[in-house]
């Protein structure tokens, strides 16, 4: 069984994995990161999206062995933890704009939202909608998600610009 090292939310792990083990199952079932859910088996829904070496990736379509040596950030590693910990500006924006209902797509949606700002920190509505095309939500009709991403972008821009 291949042994891999992987950093998840800042913690380094060494794990022996079956070659076929999916990254999302490593995260959920071995490393306790149940914040990242699975919604489909064809990489359409995007619920399992995480940051893999700083870029969004669908963790259901990556083998754990492929992530050997990589750095993974899940929804659980975004803000500072603890009940009094602060959320990432994008998480806060989703809360403020009521951009989630059942919340199942939310971890992936937040990751996709943060990712799209890497290349376009001030996205138009169209850019936002295109940037989220790989993440499905069944509850919100996306209206408030689009608003949240815009708000999150503003907050993140402010955070960057504040000395």
């Amino acid at each position: 069984m291949p042994r891999i090292t992987i950093t998840v939310d800042g913690i380094k792990y060494e794990e022996d994995v079956e070659p076929r083990l999916l990254l999302v199952h490593l995260l959920r079932e071995r490393l306790g990161r149940t914040g990242t859910p699975v919604g489909c088996d064809t990489s359409n829904c995007g619920a399992c999206t995480v940051m893999l070496d700083g870029k969004s990736a669908k963790s259901c379509s990556v083998l754990a062995v492929q992530a050997d040596g990589c750095d993974v950030v899940t929804i659980e590693g975004l803000g500072t933890n603890g009940t009094n910990g602060s959320m990432h500006p994008m998480q806060r924006a989703f809360h403020e704009e009521h951009a989630l209902q059942c919340g199942y797509c939310t971890p992936g949606m937040v990751m996709a939202a943060i990712d799209l700002l890497r290349n376009d920190p001030e996205p138009s509505e169209e850019t936002i909608r295109q940037g989220l095309e790989g993440n499905l939500c069944r509850c919100t009709g996306y209206c408030n998600i689009v608003r949240a991403v815009r708000r999150g972008a503003q907050e993140m821009g402010r955070a960057v610009n504040t000395p």
Partner: peptide, 19 residues
């Protein structure tokens, strides 16, 4: 009112049956 439900859903501290 912003929802009380959101915090856990946004930070991945969820109790889906599969969790």
């Amino acid at each position: 009112r912003r929802r009380k439900e959101d915090a856990k859903l946004l930070t991945g501290r969820t109790q889906w049956t599969d969790n």
